[in-house]
Amino acid sequence: MNLAEGVQIVSFGILAVMMLGSAFGVVLLGNVVYSAFLLAGVFISMSGLYLLLNADFVAAAQILIYVGAVNVLILFAIMLVNKRQDFVMVPRIWIRQVATALVCVGIFALLGTMVVTTPWAIVTTMPVGDASIVKIGLHFFSDFLLPFELASMLLLMALIGAVVLARREFLPEATLEPGDADALTLPERPRELLTTGRSDSTIQ
């Protein structure tokens, strides 16, 4: 079920502009909250592009997982860590930014040349379209069974690990002796904390 050619090109153009514009916003805007919302814009326009590529299931998964889970998670993280703080200026940071921008343009030029010059072996068969979900299911339970099952272990471990790291340890204050203050740190003593002292003084 392909849309007409003209409509496709127009919607591709709109989605591409939307996506690249939001992506620039994500990396360039000063306020990280705006970046997070623009990231949702990137994800949504990406899902539109997937629809153009005849992949309705993945488009839905993109919205559900990226916008519904990852982006919400990022917003929560921003809420939890967002202290209104201006980063201390680092001298000559613009040199680094310009240099990085040049390198990135160079990489883009390289990748672009590669994309344009490579004769891709395009097949002319009709895309599976609506049957894609059946096809994906078949893949999951035949030739991609191993990564499918391994992913379940990965998710279990990521769940446990993220809970362990993000959970607040409520140490009973009363029983805390002076020597126990660093009970949950590495057994090695810190080498020197000169740098911490300096950075603390610059924050406050």
Binding site: L20, A23, V26, V27, T100, L111
Partner: peptide, 8 residues
């Protein structure tokens, strides 16, 4: 490719 470079 453009998005990848923006990411970098």
């Amino acid at each position: 490719a453009a998005l990848f470079c923006i990411g970098i």
